[in-house]
Nucleic acid binder design. Structure first.
Lengths: 245, 245
DNA sequence: TAGTGGTCTAGACCACGTT
DNA sequence: ACGTGGTCTAGACCACTAC
Protein backbone atom coordinates (compact mmCIF):
# COMPACT_ATOMS: atom_id res chain seq x y z
CA UNK A 1 0.00 0.00 0.00
CA UNK A 2 1.40 3.38 -0.99
CA UNK A 3 0.26 6.91 -0.32
CA UNK A 4 0.46 9.46 -3.09
CA UNK A 5 0.92 12.78 -1.32
CA UNK A 6 0.77 14.65 -4.63
CA UNK A 7 -2.76 13.42 -5.35
CA UNK A 8 -5.79 15.65 -4.77
CA UNK A 9 -7.47 12.62 -3.18
CA UNK A 10 -7.18 13.03 0.60
CA UNK A 11 -4.80 10.63 2.32
CA UNK A 12 -7.52 9.19 4.56
CA UNK A 13 -9.53 8.22 1.50
CA UNK A 14 -6.56 6.56 -0.15
CA UNK A 15 -6.04 4.49 2.99
CA UNK A 16 -9.75 3.61 3.20
CA UNK A 17 -9.85 2.59 -0.47
CA UNK A 18 -6.81 0.35 -0.13
CA UNK A 19 -8.32 -1.50 2.81
CA UNK A 20 -11.62 -1.76 0.93
CA UNK A 21 -9.80 -3.40 -1.96
CA UNK A 22 -8.24 -5.92 0.40
CA UNK A 23 -11.67 -6.77 1.75
CA UNK A 24 -13.14 -7.22 -1.74
CA UNK A 25 -10.10 -9.22 -2.89
CA UNK A 26 -10.59 -11.32 0.20
CA UNK A 27 -7.00 -10.67 1.20
CA UNK A 28 -8.79 -9.77 4.40
CA UNK A 29 -11.66 -12.08 5.29
CA UNK A 30 -14.70 -11.95 7.52
CA UNK A 31 -13.59 -12.08 11.16
CA UNK A 32 -9.94 -11.24 10.50
CA UNK A 33 -8.30 -8.62 12.68
CA UNK A 34 -6.85 -5.62 10.88
CA UNK A 35 -3.41 -4.28 11.73
CA UNK A 36 -3.79 -1.72 14.51
CA UNK A 37 -4.09 1.99 13.79
CA UNK A 38 -0.53 2.51 15.03
CA UNK A 39 0.83 -0.08 12.63
CA UNK A 40 -0.81 1.70 9.72
CA UNK A 41 0.66 5.00 10.95
CA UNK A 42 4.21 3.67 10.83
CA UNK A 43 3.77 1.69 7.63
CA UNK A 44 2.32 4.60 5.71
CA UNK A 45 4.10 7.43 7.46
CA UNK A 46 0.77 9.05 8.31
CA UNK A 47 -0.57 10.46 11.56
CA UNK A 48 -2.86 8.67 13.99
CA UNK A 49 -5.81 10.98 13.30
CA UNK A 50 -5.62 10.38 9.57
CA UNK A 51 -5.59 6.60 9.90
CA UNK A 52 -8.43 6.81 12.38
CA UNK A 53 -10.53 8.87 9.99
CA UNK A 54 -9.96 6.28 7.23
CA UNK A 55 -10.91 3.29 9.33
CA UNK A 56 -13.87 5.08 10.95
CA UNK A 57 -15.22 5.60 7.44
CA UNK A 58 -15.15 1.85 6.83
CA UNK A 59 -16.74 1.25 10.23
CA UNK A 60 -19.62 3.58 9.32
CA UNK A 61 -20.21 1.60 6.15
CA UNK A 62 -20.32 -1.60 8.15
CA UNK A 63 -17.28 -3.14 6.45
CA UNK A 64 -15.31 -3.20 9.66
CA UNK A 65 -16.01 -3.35 13.39
CA UNK A 66 -13.98 -1.43 15.94
CA UNK A 67 -13.65 -2.78 19.47
CA UNK A 68 -12.13 -0.51 22.03
CA UNK A 69 -9.19 -2.10 23.81
CA UNK A 70 -9.22 -5.04 21.41
CA UNK A 71 -8.82 -4.16 17.75
CA UNK A 72 -10.54 -3.73 14.39
CA UNK A 73 -12.16 -6.67 12.60
CA UNK A 74 -13.62 -7.39 9.18
CA UNK A 75 -17.40 -7.48 9.54
CA UNK A 76 -19.89 -10.15 8.53
CA UNK A 77 -22.15 -9.38 5.56
CA UNK A 78 -25.23 -7.29 6.31
CA UNK A 79 -28.58 -8.77 7.26
CA UNK A 80 -31.47 -8.29 4.84
CA UNK A 81 -34.88 -7.69 6.39
CA UNK A 82 -38.13 -7.28 4.55
CA UNK A 83 -40.01 -4.05 5.10
CA UNK A 84 -43.00 -5.52 3.47
CA UNK A 85 -44.29 -8.05 5.92
CA UNK A 86 -45.84 -7.26 9.24
CA UNK A 87 -44.40 -10.33 10.86
CA UNK A 88 -42.00 -8.27 12.92
CA UNK A 89 -38.49 -8.95 14.02
CA UNK A 90 -38.91 -12.54 15.24
CA UNK A 91 -40.66 -13.67 12.09
CA UNK A 92 -38.35 -11.84 9.70
CA UNK A 93 -35.17 -13.24 11.05
CA UNK A 94 -36.03 -16.87 11.55
CA UNK A 95 -33.38 -18.55 9.48
CA UNK A 96 -30.95 -21.37 10.20
CA UNK A 97 -27.86 -20.49 12.21
CA UNK A 98 -29.37 -17.24 13.35
CA UNK A 99 -30.71 -17.02 16.86
CA UNK A 100 -32.90 -14.03 17.66
CA UNK A 101 -34.05 -12.88 21.04
CA UNK A 102 -35.05 -9.77 22.90
CA UNK A 103 -34.22 -8.00 26.12
CA UNK A 104 -37.08 -6.05 27.66
CA UNK A 105 -35.99 -2.57 28.83
CA UNK A 106 -39.42 -1.25 29.70
CA UNK A 107 -42.83 -2.88 29.92
CA UNK A 108 -45.70 -1.09 31.59
CA UNK A 109 -49.19 0.19 31.23
CA UNK A 110 -49.87 3.90 31.56
CA UNK A 111 -51.11 7.03 29.83
CA UNK A 112 -49.77 8.30 26.51
CA UNK A 113 -47.99 11.58 25.91
CA UNK A 114 -49.85 14.06 23.71
CA UNK A 115 -47.68 13.00 20.79
CA UNK A 116 -48.32 9.26 21.13
CA UNK A 117 -52.03 9.81 21.82
CA UNK A 118 -52.36 11.72 18.57
CA UNK A 119 -50.68 8.98 16.60
CA UNK A 120 -52.91 6.31 18.09
CA UNK A 121 -55.98 8.55 17.76
CA UNK A 122 -56.85 8.28 21.45
CA UNK A 123 -56.80 10.78 24.35
CA UNK A 124 -54.17 11.31 27.00
CA UNK A 125 -56.55 9.72 29.52
CA UNK A 126 -56.72 6.44 27.65
CA UNK A 127 -54.45 3.51 28.39
CA UNK A 128 -51.37 2.51 26.43
CA UNK A 129 -48.87 -0.26 26.95
CA UNK A 130 -45.24 0.64 26.38
CA UNK A 131 -42.88 -2.16 25.39
CA UNK A 132 -39.26 -1.23 24.81
CA UNK A 133 -36.96 -4.00 23.68
CA UNK A 134 -33.43 -4.55 22.53
CA UNK A 135 -33.35 -6.93 19.59
CA UNK A 136 -30.46 -9.34 19.36
CA UNK A 137 -29.12 -11.71 16.74
CA UNK A 138 -26.47 -14.15 17.94
CA UNK A 139 -25.54 -11.92 20.92
CA UNK A 140 -25.23 -8.79 18.77
CA UNK A 141 -27.57 -5.94 19.55
CA UNK A 142 -29.00 -4.95 16.18
CA UNK A 143 -32.05 -2.86 17.02
CA UNK A 144 -33.92 -0.94 19.70
CA UNK A 145 -37.70 -1.01 19.43
CA UNK A 146 -40.00 1.25 21.41
CA UNK A 147 -43.63 0.25 20.92
CA UNK A 148 -46.84 1.86 22.21
CA UNK A 149 -49.96 -0.30 22.03
CA UNK A 150 -53.40 1.28 21.98
CA UNK A 151 -55.03 -0.22 25.09
CA UNK A 152 -58.13 1.98 25.09
CA UNK A 153 -60.74 0.56 27.49
CA UNK A 154 -58.04 -1.86 28.68
CA UNK A 155 -59.07 -4.18 25.88
CA UNK A 156 -55.62 -5.66 25.42
CA UNK A 157 -54.77 -5.90 29.12
CA UNK A 158 -54.02 -9.57 28.50
CA UNK A 159 -50.72 -8.42 26.94
CA UNK A 160 -49.37 -7.65 30.41
CA UNK A 161 -49.45 -11.37 31.28
CA UNK A 162 -46.83 -12.28 28.71
CA UNK A 163 -43.07 -12.41 28.56
CA UNK A 164 -41.79 -10.58 25.51
CA UNK A 165 -38.25 -11.80 25.86
CA UNK A 166 -39.63 -15.06 24.53
CA UNK A 167 -42.94 -14.26 22.86
CA UNK A 168 -43.79 -12.24 19.75
CA UNK A 169 -45.99 -9.18 20.19
CA UNK A 170 -47.73 -9.73 16.87
CA UNK A 171 -48.48 -13.31 17.73
CA UNK A 172 -50.00 -12.40 21.10
CA UNK A 173 -52.04 -9.61 19.54
CA UNK A 174 -53.39 -12.05 17.00
CA UNK A 175 -53.91 -15.12 19.15
CA UNK A 176 -54.82 -13.69 22.54
CA UNK A 177 -56.32 -10.32 21.68
CA UNK A 178 -58.06 -11.21 18.44
CA UNK A 179 -56.40 -8.35 16.59
CA UNK A 180 -56.30 -8.73 12.85
CA UNK A 181 -53.66 -6.33 11.56
CA UNK A 182 -54.35 -4.76 8.20
CA UNK A 183 -51.70 -2.37 7.03
CA UNK A 184 -48.95 -0.25 8.46
CA UNK A 185 -47.36 3.04 7.49
CA UNK A 186 -43.64 3.28 7.91
CA UNK A 187 -40.94 5.90 7.39
CA UNK A 188 -37.21 5.28 7.17
CA UNK A 189 -34.51 7.85 7.63
CA UNK A 190 -30.87 8.03 8.61
CA UNK A 191 -29.61 9.77 11.72
CA UNK A 192 -26.62 9.32 13.95
CA UNK A 193 -26.36 7.44 17.20
CA UNK A 194 -27.39 9.53 20.22
CA UNK A 195 -25.99 9.11 23.71
CA UNK A 196 -28.96 6.92 24.65
CA UNK A 197 -28.36 4.67 21.64
CA UNK A 198 -24.66 4.62 22.42
CA UNK A 199 -25.39 3.36 25.92
CA UNK A 200 -28.15 0.90 25.18
CA UNK A 201 -27.03 -0.52 21.85
CA UNK A 202 -23.29 -0.40 22.54
CA UNK A 203 -22.74 1.47 19.28
CA UNK A 204 -20.17 4.25 18.86
CA UNK A 205 -21.51 7.78 19.22
CA UNK A 206 -22.45 9.48 15.98
CA UNK A 207 -22.56 6.32 13.87
CA UNK A 208 -25.23 6.48 11.16
CA UNK A 209 -28.35 4.48 12.11
CA UNK A 210 -31.68 3.70 10.44
CA UNK A 211 -34.55 5.38 12.25
CA UNK A 212 -37.92 3.77 11.52
CA UNK A 213 -41.35 4.93 12.61
CA UNK A 214 -44.41 2.76 12.09
CA UNK A 215 -48.12 2.96 12.78
CA UNK A 216 -49.94 -0.38 12.44
CA UNK A 217 -53.69 -0.50 11.84
CA UNK A 218 -56.22 -3.28 12.31
CA UNK A 219 -58.56 -4.20 9.46
CA UNK A 220 -61.05 -1.60 10.72
CA UNK A 221 -58.29 0.97 10.11
CA UNK A 222 -57.94 1.78 13.78
CA UNK A 223 -54.35 2.49 14.90
CA UNK A 224 -53.21 -0.34 17.17
CA UNK A 225 -49.52 0.26 17.58
CA UNK A 226 -46.95 3.00 17.17
CA UNK A 227 -43.30 1.95 17.08
CA UNK A 228 -40.07 3.87 16.85
CA UNK A 229 -37.10 1.67 16.06
CA UNK A 230 -33.41 2.21 15.57
CA UNK A 231 -31.50 -0.32 13.47
CA UNK A 232 -27.78 -0.54 12.96
CA UNK A 233 -27.18 0.80 9.46
CA UNK A 234 -23.88 -1.07 9.28
CA UNK A 235 -25.63 -4.41 9.73
CA UNK A 236 -28.95 -4.00 7.94
CA UNK A 237 -30.27 -3.93 4.41
CA UNK A 238 -33.99 -3.42 4.08
CA UNK A 239 -35.88 -4.96 1.22
CA UNK A 240 -39.29 -4.16 -0.19
CA UNK A 241 -41.55 -5.29 -2.98
CA UNK A 242 -43.26 -2.42 -4.73
CA UNK A 243 -46.37 -2.51 -6.88
CA UNK A 244 -47.86 -0.19 -9.45
CA UNK A 245 -51.16 -0.30 -7.48
CA UNK B 1 -23.12 27.52 25.86
CA UNK B 2 -20.73 25.95 28.33
CA UNK B 3 -18.40 22.97 28.12
CA UNK B 4 -18.08 20.66 31.08
CA UNK B 5 -14.58 19.24 30.85
CA UNK B 6 -15.21 17.02 33.87
CA UNK B 7 -18.05 15.20 32.12
CA UNK B 8 -17.55 11.79 30.57
CA UNK B 9 -19.53 13.05 27.57
CA UNK B 10 -17.01 14.00 24.88
CA UNK B 11 -16.64 17.71 24.21
CA UNK B 12 -17.61 17.39 20.55
CA UNK B 13 -20.91 15.80 21.56
CA UNK B 14 -21.63 18.54 24.09
CA UNK B 15 -21.09 21.12 21.36
CA UNK B 16 -23.26 19.19 18.87
CA UNK B 17 -26.07 18.81 21.41
CA UNK B 18 -26.05 22.51 22.26
CA UNK B 19 -26.39 23.48 18.61
CA UNK B 20 -29.12 20.86 18.16
CA UNK B 21 -31.04 22.44 21.03
CA UNK B 22 -30.77 25.83 19.38
CA UNK B 23 -32.18 24.39 16.16
CA UNK B 24 -35.11 22.73 17.96
CA UNK B 25 -35.75 25.87 20.04
CA UNK B 26 -35.72 27.76 16.77
CA UNK B 27 -33.08 30.08 18.17
CA UNK B 28 -31.48 29.10 14.89
CA UNK B 29 -33.89 28.89 11.98
CA UNK B 30 -33.91 27.27 8.57
CA UNK B 31 -31.48 29.10 6.29
CA UNK B 32 -29.61 30.90 9.08
CA UNK B 33 -25.85 30.88 8.98
CA UNK B 34 -24.09 29.41 12.00
CA UNK B 35 -21.14 31.15 13.63
CA UNK B 36 -17.95 29.92 11.92
CA UNK B 37 -15.92 27.03 13.30
CA UNK B 38 -13.25 29.48 14.47
CA UNK B 39 -15.78 31.53 16.42
CA UNK B 40 -16.92 28.42 18.27
CA UNK B 41 -13.26 27.58 19.02
CA UNK B 42 -12.66 30.90 20.72
CA UNK B 43 -16.02 31.07 22.45
CA UNK B 44 -15.72 27.60 23.93
CA UNK B 45 -11.95 27.42 24.31
CA UNK B 46 -11.87 24.25 22.21
CA UNK B 47 -9.69 23.25 19.29
CA UNK B 48 -10.59 23.50 15.63
CA UNK B 49 -10.71 19.73 15.13
CA UNK B 50 -13.13 19.26 18.00
CA UNK B 51 -15.56 21.90 16.76
CA UNK B 52 -15.32 20.43 13.28
CA UNK B 53 -16.17 16.98 14.53
CA UNK B 54 -19.24 18.34 16.32
CA UNK B 55 -20.57 20.24 13.34
CA UNK B 56 -19.78 17.41 10.89
CA UNK B 57 -21.98 15.19 13.02
CA UNK B 58 -24.88 17.58 12.54
CA UNK B 59 -24.12 17.79 8.82
CA UNK B 60 -24.32 13.99 8.55
CA UNK B 61 -27.74 14.04 10.16
CA UNK B 62 -28.88 16.63 7.67
CA UNK B 63 -29.54 19.31 10.30
CA UNK B 64 -26.91 21.59 8.88
CA UNK B 65 -25.25 22.21 5.50
CA UNK B 66 -21.57 23.03 5.17
CA UNK B 67 -20.40 25.13 2.22
CA UNK B 68 -16.69 25.36 1.66
CA UNK B 69 -15.48 28.92 1.52
CA UNK B 70 -18.88 30.22 2.59
CA UNK B 71 -20.15 28.94 5.91
CA UNK B 72 -22.49 26.55 7.69
CA UNK B 73 -26.26 26.89 7.40
CA UNK B 74 -29.33 25.41 9.08
CA UNK B 75 -30.92 22.96 6.64
CA UNK B 76 -34.47 22.70 5.32
CA UNK B 77 -36.61 19.79 6.59
CA UNK B 78 -36.11 16.45 4.82
CA UNK B 79 -38.12 15.34 1.77
CA UNK B 80 -40.42 12.33 2.15
CA UNK B 81 -40.63 9.97 -0.82
CA UNK B 82 -42.79 6.91 -1.13
CA UNK B 83 -41.08 3.61 -1.75
CA UNK B 84 -44.35 2.05 -2.57
CA UNK B 85 -45.28 3.45 -5.92
CA UNK B 86 -43.48 2.77 -9.13
CA UNK B 87 -44.09 6.24 -10.44
CA UNK B 88 -40.45 7.14 -10.10
CA UNK B 89 -38.77 10.35 -9.15
CA UNK B 90 -40.77 12.75 -11.32
CA UNK B 91 -44.12 11.38 -10.18
CA UNK B 92 -43.16 11.12 -6.53
CA UNK B 93 -42.01 14.65 -6.12
CA UNK B 94 -44.65 16.58 -8.01
CA UNK B 95 -45.87 18.94 -5.37
CA UNK B 96 -46.39 22.70 -5.30
CA UNK B 97 -43.29 24.84 -4.89
CA UNK B 98 -41.03 21.96 -5.75
CA UNK B 99 -39.47 21.85 -9.18
CA UNK B 100 -37.87 18.59 -10.21
CA UNK B 101 -35.65 17.95 -13.17
CA UNK B 102 -32.85 15.73 -14.34
CA UNK B 103 -29.46 16.03 -15.88
CA UNK B 104 -28.44 13.19 -18.17
CA UNK B 105 -24.88 12.01 -17.51
CA UNK B 106 -24.92 8.96 -19.76
CA UNK B 107 -27.42 7.70 -22.31
CA UNK B 108 -26.47 4.99 -24.75
CA UNK B 109 -27.27 1.58 -26.09
CA UNK B 110 -24.76 -1.23 -25.69
CA UNK B 111 -24.08 -4.64 -24.18
CA UNK B 112 -24.49 -5.43 -20.50
CA UNK B 113 -21.75 -6.51 -18.11
CA UNK B 114 -22.06 -10.05 -16.77
CA UNK B 115 -23.53 -8.64 -13.56
CA UNK B 116 -26.23 -6.55 -15.23
CA UNK B 117 -27.05 -9.33 -17.72
CA UNK B 118 -27.69 -11.72 -14.86
CA UNK B 119 -29.99 -9.29 -13.11
CA UNK B 120 -31.99 -8.68 -16.29
CA UNK B 121 -31.93 -12.40 -17.15
CA UNK B 122 -30.42 -11.81 -20.58
CA UNK B 123 -27.02 -12.61 -22.11
CA UNK B 124 -24.01 -10.35 -22.52
CA UNK B 125 -24.72 -10.28 -26.25
CA UNK B 126 -28.16 -8.77 -25.83
CA UNK B 127 -28.83 -5.06 -25.93
CA UNK B 128 -29.30 -2.79 -22.94
CA UNK B 129 -29.86 0.93 -22.69
CA UNK B 130 -28.00 2.73 -19.94
CA UNK B 131 -29.50 5.93 -18.63
CA UNK B 132 -27.62 7.71 -15.86
CA UNK B 133 -29.20 10.82 -14.45
CA UNK B 134 -28.70 13.33 -11.72
CA UNK B 135 -31.99 14.13 -10.02
CA UNK B 136 -32.56 17.68 -8.89
CA UNK B 137 -35.11 19.45 -6.72
CA UNK B 138 -34.99 23.25 -6.83
CA UNK B 139 -31.34 23.26 -8.03
CA UNK B 140 -30.22 20.82 -5.32
CA UNK B 141 -28.79 17.51 -6.46
CA UNK B 142 -30.62 14.94 -4.38
CA UNK B 143 -30.01 11.65 -6.18
CA UNK B 144 -27.97 9.84 -8.80
CA UNK B 145 -29.83 7.16 -10.74
CA UNK B 146 -28.10 4.61 -12.95
CA UNK B 147 -30.66 2.58 -14.91
CA UNK B 148 -30.18 -0.36 -17.28
CA UNK B 149 -33.14 -1.18 -19.50
CA UNK B 150 -33.54 -4.66 -20.98
CA UNK B 151 -33.54 -3.95 -24.73
CA UNK B 152 -33.35 -7.56 -25.89
CA UNK B 153 -34.14 -7.79 -29.61
CA UNK B 154 -33.98 -3.98 -29.66
CA UNK B 155 -37.63 -3.96 -28.72
CA UNK B 156 -37.45 -0.68 -26.81
CA UNK B 157 -35.15 1.09 -29.26
CA UNK B 158 -37.76 3.84 -29.36
CA UNK B 159 -36.40 4.98 -25.98
CA UNK B 160 -33.32 6.38 -27.70
CA UNK B 161 -35.47 9.00 -29.43
CA UNK B 162 -36.42 10.73 -26.21
CA UNK B 163 -34.97 13.41 -24.00
CA UNK B 164 -34.87 12.26 -20.41
CA UNK B 165 -33.98 15.61 -19.01
CA UNK B 166 -37.62 16.43 -19.65
CA UNK B 167 -39.43 13.14 -20.00
CA UNK B 168 -40.15 10.35 -17.51
CA UNK B 169 -38.71 6.92 -18.27
CA UNK B 170 -41.71 5.13 -16.83
CA UNK B 171 -44.08 7.21 -18.91
CA UNK B 172 -42.17 6.48 -22.15
CA UNK B 173 -42.01 2.78 -21.30
CA UNK B 174 -45.73 2.75 -20.76
CA UNK B 175 -46.91 4.98 -23.56
CA UNK B 176 -44.38 4.34 -26.31
CA UNK B 177 -43.14 0.83 -25.57
CA UNK B 178 -46.37 -0.69 -24.29
CA UNK B 179 -44.67 -1.91 -21.14
CA UNK B 180 -47.00 -2.65 -18.27
CA UNK B 181 -44.90 -2.72 -15.12
CA UNK B 182 -46.01 -5.17 -12.47
CA UNK B 183 -43.84 -5.18 -9.40
CA UNK B 184 -40.34 -4.25 -8.38
CA UNK B 185 -37.92 -5.57 -5.80
CA UNK B 186 -35.90 -3.01 -3.96
CA UNK B 187 -33.19 -2.99 -1.30
CA UNK B 188 -32.13 -0.04 0.81
CA UNK B 189 -28.89 0.28 2.68
CA UNK B 190 -26.61 2.98 4.02
CA UNK B 191 -23.10 3.56 2.77
CA UNK B 192 -20.84 6.55 2.58
CA UNK B 193 -20.19 8.88 -0.34
CA UNK B 194 -17.50 7.61 -2.69
CA UNK B 195 -15.21 9.83 -4.73
CA UNK B 196 -17.53 9.48 -7.74
CA UNK B 197 -20.53 10.54 -5.66
CA UNK B 198 -18.50 13.37 -4.18
CA UNK B 199 -17.73 14.68 -7.67
CA UNK B 200 -21.08 14.15 -9.32
CA UNK B 201 -23.45 14.95 -6.48
CA UNK B 202 -21.35 17.67 -4.87
CA UNK B 203 -21.62 15.92 -1.52
CA UNK B 204 -18.76 15.75 1.01
CA UNK B 205 -16.67 12.57 0.95
CA UNK B 206 -17.73 9.90 3.37
CA UNK B 207 -21.17 11.35 4.11
CA UNK B 208 -23.77 8.64 4.78
CA UNK B 209 -26.01 8.05 1.75
CA UNK B 210 -28.96 5.78 0.95
CA UNK B 211 -28.02 3.15 -1.62
CA UNK B 212 -31.03 1.67 -3.40
CA UNK B 213 -31.08 -1.20 -5.86
CA UNK B 214 -34.22 -2.06 -7.80
CA UNK B 215 -35.30 -4.60 -10.37
CA UNK B 216 -38.62 -3.77 -12.06
CA UNK B 217 -40.66 -6.49 -13.75
CA UNK B 218 -43.44 -6.31 -16.31
CA UNK B 219 -46.71 -8.13 -15.67
CA UNK B 220 -45.25 -11.24 -17.34
CA UNK B 221 -42.60 -11.16 -14.59
CA UNK B 222 -39.80 -10.45 -17.02
CA UNK B 223 -37.12 -8.07 -15.66
CA UNK B 224 -37.33 -4.80 -17.57
CA UNK B 225 -35.08 -2.48 -15.64
CA UNK B 226 -32.27 -2.61 -13.11
CA UNK B 227 -31.48 0.63 -11.26
CA UNK B 228 -28.88 1.57 -8.72
CA UNK B 229 -29.58 4.89 -7.05
CA UNK B 230 -27.88 6.97 -4.44
CA UNK B 231 -29.99 9.40 -2.42
CA UNK B 232 -28.80 12.01 0.02
CA UNK B 233 -29.56 10.58 3.45
CA UNK B 234 -29.52 14.06 4.93
CA UNK B 235 -32.38 15.18 2.70
CA UNK B 236 -34.57 12.10 2.33
CA UNK B 237 -37.10 10.17 4.36
CA UNK B 238 -38.56 7.12 2.64
CA UNK B 239 -42.08 6.03 3.37
CA UNK B 240 -43.81 2.74 2.74
CA UNK B 241 -47.16 1.12 3.32
CA UNK B 242 -46.86 -2.47 4.49
CA UNK B 243 -49.48 -5.20 4.39
CA UNK B 244 -49.92 -8.49 6.20
CA UNK B 245 -50.29 -10.21 2.79
C1' DT C 1 -7.47 39.81 0.38
C1' DA C 2 -9.89 37.95 4.09
C1' DG C 3 -12.74 34.45 5.81
C1' DT C 4 -14.60 29.88 5.31
C1' DG C 5 -14.46 24.84 5.73
C1' DG C 6 -11.17 20.54 4.77
C1' DT C 7 -6.97 18.08 5.70
C1' DC C 8 -2.96 16.78 8.27
C1' DT C 9 0.56 16.47 11.93
C1' DA C 10 3.00 15.06 16.30
C1' DG C 11 2.19 14.33 20.46
C1' DA C 12 -0.66 13.93 24.69
C1' DC C 13 -3.87 11.60 27.64
C1' DC C 14 -7.84 8.51 28.51
C1' DA C 15 -10.74 4.17 29.01
C1' DC C 16 -10.92 -0.28 27.93
C1' DG C 17 -9.85 -5.39 27.49
C1' DT C 18 -6.41 -8.96 27.53
C1' DT C 19 -2.58 -11.05 29.55
C1' DA D 1 1.60 -3.92 32.18
C1' DC D 2 0.58 -3.49 27.59
C1' DG D 3 -1.77 -2.60 23.38
C1' DT D 4 -6.08 -1.16 21.62
C1' DG D 5 -9.25 2.46 19.93
C1' DG D 6 -11.26 7.37 21.38
C1' DT D 7 -10.53 12.18 22.35
C1' DC D 8 -8.20 16.54 22.20
C1' DT D 9 -4.77 20.13 21.26
C1' DA D 10 -2.17 23.92 18.81
C1' DG D 11 -0.75 24.98 14.89
C1' DA D 12 -0.02 24.42 9.86
C1' DC D 13 -1.41 24.56 5.11
C1' DC D 14 -4.84 24.09 1.38
C1' DA D 15 -8.93 25.17 -1.70
C1' DC D 16 -12.75 27.63 -2.16
C1' DT D 17 -15.87 31.86 -2.17
C1' DA D 18 -16.95 36.51 -1.78
C1' DC D 19 -15.68 41.14 -2.00
Amino acid sequence: MRINTESTVPVYLQVANEIKKNIKDETLKSGDMLPSDRVYCEELGVSHMTVKKAIDLLANEGLVIRKKGVGTFIAEPKITQSLFTLTGFTGDNKSPGRETYSKVLNFKEGHPSADIAKKLMITEKDSVINLKRLRMINDDIVALEDAYINNKNKRYQEIMNHDFERESLYQILKEKCNVELGLAKETIEVSSATEEINMQMEVPLGKPMFYLKRISYNIEEEPIEYVESVYRADKYIFSAVLTTQ
